[in-house]
Every structure is written in C-alpha cells, then in structure tokens.
Design a protein around this nucleic acid. Sequence first.
RNA 1: GCUGGUGUAGCACAGUCGGUAGUGCAGCUGAUUCGUAAUCAGCAGGUCGUGCGUUCGAGUCGCAUCACCAGCUCCA
Length: 636
Amino acid sequence: MIQIKLKDGSVKSYEKGSTIFDIAKDISEGLARVALAGEVNGELKDLRTALDDDCGLNILTFDTEGGKHTYWHTASHIMAQAVKRLFPGVKLAIGPAIDNGFYYDFDLDRTFTPEDMQAIEKEMQNIIKEDLAIERFTLPRDKALELMKDEPYKVELINELPEGSEISFYKQGDFTDLCAGPHLLSTGKVKAVKLMQLAGAYWRGNEKNKMLQRIYGIAFPKASQLDEYLKMLEEAEKRDHRRLGRELDLFSFDEEVGPGLVLWHPRGARVRMRIEDFWRKQHIKNGYDIVYTPHIGRGKLWETSGHLGFYNDSMYSPMDVDGQDFYTKPMNCPFHIAIYKSRLHSYRDLPYRWAELGTVYRYEKSGVLHGLLRVRGFTQDDAHIFCAPEQMPAEIRRVLKFCLYMLKAFGFSEYKIYISTKPKDKFVGDENMWVEATKALMEAVAAEGLECDIDEGGGAFYGPKIDIKIKDALNREWQCSTIQFDFNEPERFDMTYVAADGSRKRPYMIHRALLGSIERFFGVLLEHHAGAFPVWLAPVQARILPILDKHHEFAEQVAAKLRDRDVDVEIDTRNEKIGFKIREAQLEKIPYMLVIGDKEVENGAVAVRSRKEGDLGSMDVDAFVEKIVAEIAARV
RNA sequence: GCUGGUGUAGCACAGUCGGUAGUGCAGCUGAUUCGUAAUCAGCAGGUCGUGCGUUCGAGUCGCAUCACCAGCUCCA
C-alpha cells in the first residue's frame, strides 16, 4: 500500500500501482468525470500514471493551469490527427498548449485555405466523436527513430533528446505522436473546439529555418465557455487602442510621415499632458530632479557608451554635421552620464536621481510595429540613479516602491514581477557586483511582500534587472516598468566620486522606466479603460449641453466657473436636439454632461448626467464644481 | 526582416465575366428652438495606396513598391 496526501491535506492509502484516475474515481465519480491530469509532488502527470510510492497528489481540472494545459495539448493532437487524415503527406513539427489554447506547426507543400480549416475542424469533431482511447508507450531510441522515420522534424527532436531520457509516444487510433505528455484518457474528453487562426512560424523559431504553417486553436469542456471566450475576444477588439485612437480622435499615424511615428491629436495630447504633469509632480516629490537632454549626439559619445557596438542594429544611420557623425539617441543614459561628468562629485552628494521624459528613436523591424505599443519614436519616462555601493539596496527598494505607487495611481494593482540574473557567458562587471545587485533586487521584491519569477541567465550583459508586467481589465499582461543595473557605462565613461577617504570610487548606476514609454503606457491605459478615461485623465472632463440658444449665456458662465478651477469643459452650442447632443457626448465617453434648460438657468443649477450612471438630477452649479474638482484631485 | 492576408470618399463597407465607381454614417447648406443615446430636406465628396506593364479598354489581370493586419523573431 502507498500513502497519498491529497490537496485538502488528508492522507489516504491505495494499492501500489493505482493510477491517478483510480484515485480520482475513489474520491468521487464527479471528480473522475472532470479530472484532466494530476500533479504528483508538483509535477504534471497523466491520469493514467501509476503511482508506486508515497506522494502528494493534486487532481487537476479545467480550472487549473495544468488541467487546461493537458486539455489543450490533447486538442492539438486531435488537430494534428485530423490534418494527417486530410493531408497524408503533411510533416508534423511541434504542437504544444499555450496560454490561450494550442497550436500545431505543419510542413505542407501548399498553404492551408479557409476551406481547409473548416474541413480540419470538422474532422476534429469526428475524432472527438470516435472517442479514441489515448495510449502512452515508450521506446528505445533506435525503435523511436524507426517509428518516426517519415517525420523529419520528429527525427530531429529525438536525436536531440539527451542520452538516457525516456522517449514517450502517445497513440490515439490511427495517429501516433512523439510527445512528453501529459494527455487526456480519450479524444472524447475534448468538447467545444475552434480553430482560431493560421500563421507562418519558423521551425524552432529561427528565421534561418523553414517557415511552417501554424494553426492556432482553442478548446473548452463546455460550449458556453467557448462562447464566453469568443465574446471576450470581441470585447478586446472593441477596446483595441488603434480603433479607439481613431474613434476618439486621440492620435494617428500617417503614411507620409512614416511608420511607427505617432501624431498626437489635441485630445490625445491633453491626456498625455495630464499623465506627464502627474509624473513630474510625483518624481519631484520622490526625490528626483528633472533634466532635459538633446535628441542627437556625436558619434564619439555612442562609441564611448558602447551603443555603436552592441546596439547598432536599433540605431538610425548617422547624419553628417560639419563633417562629423551625429546619431539620434536610442537611449538617454549617455547624456545623463555627461551631466554627471560635468563636474566632480563627493560621496556626500550621492545619490543622484535624474529623471527625463526623453524621446528616443529606435529602428524596429517593420513587421513588429503595432499601434502605440511598438513604435519607432517614443518617450521613455526615464531616470538614472547614481549612488554609492552602500546606498544601492535602499535605492532599489525606494524605486520599486515608487514604481508600484505610480502603477497603482493609474489603476493597475495586479502585477507579475520578473527578475533576470547574470547571463552565462557574456557579461561585464565583477561577479560580486552581480551577486549584490541581484540580492538587492530580490530583497526589494520580498520587502514589498511580492512574488516574482526568476529568469536565470536572462539579464542583459551589463546588469541584472526587474521587469514588471501589469494586468489590465481583461486580465492581459503588459510589460511597462523596468529597473536595470548597469555595470558597463560607469566603467566606459570612467564615472567616479570622491569617497570619504579621499579615494576615487565608481558609483552604481541604475536605469529605470516606470511607465515604460508614454506611448505604450497610453495605449495600455486606453485599452484598460476601453476609451473611457477616468475624469482626472479625460481630455474633455465635462461638456455643457444647452437645450436652446437662449441658454448659451448661462452655459458660458458655468464653463467659466469650471475653467477657473482647471476643469476642461466644452459647450455644445450646435442647433441640435438634446438627445442628439447626449448621444454624441456619450459616444465620445465624456465623463460628465451638464444639461442646461430653463429650470437650470432659473435655479443656478446644472442637470448632471454621468457617462456611467446616467441622469443624476439637478445640482447647484457650485456643488457640481466642487464635486468634479474633488474627483479630479482624488484621481478617480 | 520573414510567411500569409488586406488596401475603393474622413469612417465602415459593396463593386459580377476587364467596359471609366456606389451604399450607410460623418461633412456642408437650409429648415426646425426642441428636456436625457440619432429632426427633416438638399448638396458636395474618389488619379480605386503608388509605379510600371498586359489590353482597344484595368478598381478588376501581371510585376514591383509602400503602408496596414495576423503570426514568427525581437522588445519600452
């Protein structure tokens, strides 16, 4: 007998060799029906796995990552089987589960058409109806190669498996695939499936390799869940910042101006200005000094900084100025360092925290540009911290705290934090600095009571870093903030300060961007709010809607009162019916509409309509002014 | 950059087999003075992304190019 410790902490005895499915059945028939996989001592396993030793067991359903993963992995095999049935000559590459469904990469001598997709989906339904049992077996390497001899990609994969590793296969009816698993027990477990899109993908993600055809799909245990998912996608499309940017007249791109170069319209610029004003105020409050630096710099500068060496691919060609090369800046740091070097510094002066909304230009491959989220000219909310080694841990904690404060101020309170550590081969600076800096990053995260993922060896060659991803209203993750050590540039520029003992020492340098870039952050914010910016950010905070011409004069008086308190207000004096004016203001997502008619003029009032809550009734003008001013100050 | 797709009025789209372009919304003009999501009528608006080619004739076919979209790779 073996002892199995279950998720709820209880321990039960089972026959040695019981499968996870047996145990699920023993717990309850209901659980067995929805069970998809098991987690044995934290490791994802098949339901068919036989347990021979005492262990901790967690039965996974579709609510869990592991359960979904298994479910989608099987769905991807069903898709591969369907494609294999319809296109016998197709070569299979890989087909994993991903965060939102699954894909499989195929090598076929012609491209899939939309009709093919339909046929594949239909064949998948057949395979599901056939409810084929899925069996797992393993083979020694030579037998595995023999079995997969017609699948060149599989052969490559098998050959790369390390010596002695188990080579497992999964078989369902006429289809067998090399696969580590886990998988469901039969194809009938998969219910609602839909193929989502078709795209090219390189074999093993390398652009030197052959381009394969990737089919993406999604599957759910219930049709209603699939519908819900599709609705969510529709919602995301409605929130697409590129669409909202045009509809709300916030920004645009112009073919003649150039790709990836943003034109900020008055409305968008007003929101941006509010973001930047807030940003500046907070930075000053938090011990930063604001600096400004030029957009171009002499080639020598970029040679010294090392950018011409390691960042050249992202920089634009130089321009000739009086026979010398000048480059537009892809980063602000060399300029901030130049400020530092303009005079001698004592340890008493440190730390310096210099912040700049610095506009940089980077060459991005044409295929990666994406609205405001990926552009070629953007403004970083950049800052560099220069401090003495002993100040470094406190500075890191301080910057992380400030970062979270800023994100929260904009309505983002869920994060995922990633720490990237020293790369294996290529890096600068001595080992000790890396250890200390990485430790400081981890301790700062712990001090904030936050969890983080460690990307071992994922840091840049010049230092370890923290990246913070925020979660938006649709639960999507966006990378904005980054805090990075730089052991490279202080060395290259020979930055020093005079220590207490009179010796010259090298300061620590930390790059950080909290919002990332104003462009991207604006795009994320726009999608997060579905275009309905909170009052404090909204480009037009209130619009006055007079019912008749004779109400215009009073409308002007109300507007003047609001403007006097820095509220951005407009008056809709068009000769239109009130319903029409309201409809337009509503579509423009203006937070407050102030209807003015005879009653209001008579009582010195406004009839307030909220974008969210509709008609709020009549309110004294001064009372409304106080209300909206308070809301703006509270940033709601 | 790579693979596939798209490009017609400010926006959303239609345009058959190659025969010189249409609808809705927006815009403009006029009428209408009206209380919480669309008042009515009229008018105007296009080198069909760009260039070259095929053809008697190209929005439509071919080639090139630019931009955008989805994905790959990369990243703020």
